[in-house]
C-alpha cells in the first residue's frame, strides 16, 4: 500500500476509535459539544452588539458587518479544525513524556510526530466547524457575493495553510515538555498568541498597532493564518497596496517555514527524550 494512503487509513482508524470512545461517554460528549457551542454563540452575540454601534470596523477598511462575519466564520473553521485534530494530542503530549507513554509510540514503524499529533480526534469541536461554515456561507449570501470556483479552491488551500500554522505553533510549544517536564503555562501561551490572529489585520494600525502587526506577521505568523483566506472571499476585489499582493505568496513561505521549524524542534525533542522510569 502506498505510504500516504496507509497514513490516511491509520488516521481514519484514529478518528473512528475516538468517535467510539466519545459515544461511550455520551453525556460528557454532549456537555462538551454544547458548552463549546454556547461559547461560540456568546462571542457572536458580542460581535453583533458591536455592529449595533458602528457599520464597519474602522473607516474605509472594508470590514463591514457581513465581511467581518465571513472573517469570523473562517476563524471558527480554522480554530475548530486545529482544536478538533490537534488540541487533545498536544495536551496529551506532556503526559506521554512525563509518564513514559511515548515509549510505545517510538517503537511503532510510523512517523512518531504523525502518531503523536493525530491519535485523538476531538469530535465535540465539530459543531464549531459547522457553525463557522454556516456563518461564512450565510454572510456571503447577505453580501450577495458568489465566489468563483478558483476563489473557493484558493480559500480552502489557505484555510489549510492556516490550520498548519496553528498546528506548528501548538506543537512547537508542546514539544518543550521534553526539556521542561511540565509546560502547561507555556502551552496556554498558544491561546494568547492565537487570539491575536482572530481579528482583521487592519485593526493593528498606528504607533501601537504596527509593531504588533509586523511581529505577528513575520516572527510568529499567526496573523496571516485567518486573514489571508478570508481576504480571498471578501477583500480581494480591491487590493489596497503591494503588500496585499505579496501576502498570499508570503503565507505559503511562512507555512512551510513554521512547519519545518516545528518538525525540527520535534525531532530534537524526540532525541532528548529520556523515558520515565520503567
Amino acid at each position: 500500500m502506498p505510504q500516504p494512503l496507509r497514513y490516511l487509513q491509520i488516521f481514519a482508524t484514529f478518528a473512528r476509535n475516538s468517535l467510539i470512545r466519545d459515544m461511550t461517554f455520551r453525556a460528557n460528549f454532549l456537555i462538551e459539544f454544547i458548552s463549546s457551542l454556547s461559547w461560540v454563540f456568546m462571542n457572536l452575540g458580542f460581535y453583533i452588539l458591536i455592529f449595533h454601534y458602528t457599520p464597519s470596523l474602522g473607516r474605509d477598511t472594508g470590514w463591514g458587518k457581513y465581511e467581518f462575519f465571513v472573517f469570523t466564520g473562517t476563524a471558527l473553521m480554522i480554530n475548530s479544525l486545529a482544536g478538533m485534530l490537534f488540541m487533545t494530542n498536544a495536551d496529551n503530549f506532556g503526559e506521554l513524556i512525563r509518564r513514559g507513554g511515548l515509549d510505545f509510540v517510538l517503537v511503532k514503524p510510523v512517523d512518531t510526530q504523525f502518531l503523536v499529533s493525530l491519535q485523538r480526534v476531538d469530535w465535540s469541536s465539530s459543531g464549531n466547524f459547522l457553525v463557522g461554515l454556516g456563518l461564512a456561507v450565510y454572510s456571503l449570501r447577505c453580501l450577495g457575493v458568489w465566489p468563483s470556483p478558483v476563489t473557493i479552491v484558493l480559500y480552502v488551500f489557505y484555510l489549510l495553510c492556516g490550520v498548519v500554522i496553528l498546528y506548528s505553533l501548538m506543537f512547537l510549544l508542546a514539544a518543550t515538555a521534553v526539556w521542561l517536564g511540565r509546560n502547561e503555562t507555556l502551552f496556554d501561551f498558544w491561546f494568547y498568541i492565537v487570539s491575536f490572529g482572530r481579528y482583521p489585520m487592519e485593526i493593528y494600525e498606528g504607533r501601537f498597532g504596527r509593531p504588533f502587526r509586523w511581529f505577528f506577521t513575520f516572527i510568529i505568523p499567526v496573523l496571516v493564518a485567518i486573514n489571508v483566506p478570508s481576504r480571498f472571499l471578501v477583500q480581494s476585489i480591491r487590493p489596497q497596496s503591494l503588500e496585499e499582493w505579496l501576502l498570499p505568496l508570503y503565507t505559503i513561505a511562512a507555512t512551510v517555514i513554521v512547519f519545518a521549524v516545528c518538525r525540527a524542534v520535534f525531532q530534537l525533542a524526540l532525541h532528548s527524550y529520556r523515558s520515565a522510569s520503567s
Binding site: 511515548l102 515509549d103 517510538l106 517503537v107 532525541h271 527524550y273 529520556r274 523515558s275
Partner: peptide, 9 residues
Amino acid sequence: LKLLSGIIT
C-alpha cells in the same frame, strides 16, 4: 531494553 528498542540514545 530501552536502548535496544531505540527509545533512548
